[in-house]
Amino acid sequence: MSILSLHHGDHHVHGETPSLHPVRDFAADWLEATPAAILLRPVGAFLTEWAKATPVGILFQSLHR
């Protein structure tokens, strides 16, 4: 089951002004309502940590410092 929640104007817009980017707001609301949004953070965090643990990631981190 998916729940669609339209949060007009809450994407870093302060005050009671209407949104200037309705297409962007719709896309953000749609993505937040999809099951993929639930998986994006943990998968992204896992891939980031995995990349840092690879020999190339370790070498890059040591060269970057």
Rank of each mutant, 00 (worst) to 15 (best):
M1R: 14
M1C: 09
S2K: 15
S2C: 14
I3E: 11
I3R: 14
L4K: 10
L4M: 13
L4N: 13
L4E: 13
S5K: 14
L6F: 09
L6H: 08
H7K: 06
H7A: 08
H7G: 09
H8Q: 01
G9M: 00
G9A: 00
G9C: 00
D10S: 02
D10M: 04
D10L: 00
H11C: 00
H11F: 01
G15N: 03
E16S: 03
E16W: 06
T17K: 07
T17W: 01
T17L: 04
S19K: 00
L20K: 06
L20F: 11
H21R: 03
P22A: 15
P22H: 15
V23I: 14
R24W: 05
R24G: 02
D25C: 12
D25G: 08
D25R: 05
A27L: 11
A28Y: 11
A28Q: 09
D29G: 09
W30H: 13
W30Q: 09
W30F: 12
W30L: 01
L31N: 12
L31V: 02
L31Q: 11
E32I: 07
A33H: 10
P35I: 04
P35C: 04
P35M: 03
A36R: 08
A36P: 01
A37I: 06
A37E: 01
A37Q: 01
I38L: 06
I38C: 02
L39V: 08
L39P: 01
L39N: 08
R41N: 10
R41V: 10
P42M: 02
P42N: 07
V43F: 14
V43E: 07
V43G: 09
G44A: 10
G44C: 08
G44R: 10
G44V: 12
F46L: 15
L47E: 03
T48E: 14
W50V: 09
W50M: 12
W50S: 14
A51I: 01
K52Q: 15
K52F: 11
T54E: 09
T54K: 15
T54F: 00
T54V: 06
P55K: 13
V56R: 03
G57E: 09
G57T: 13
G57Y: 02
L59D: 04
F60S: 03
F60Q: 12
F60A: 13
F60K: 09
Q61F: 07
S62N: 11
L63F: 07
H64N: 08
H64L: 06
H64K: 08
H64A: 07
R65V: 10
R65L: 05
R65H: 11
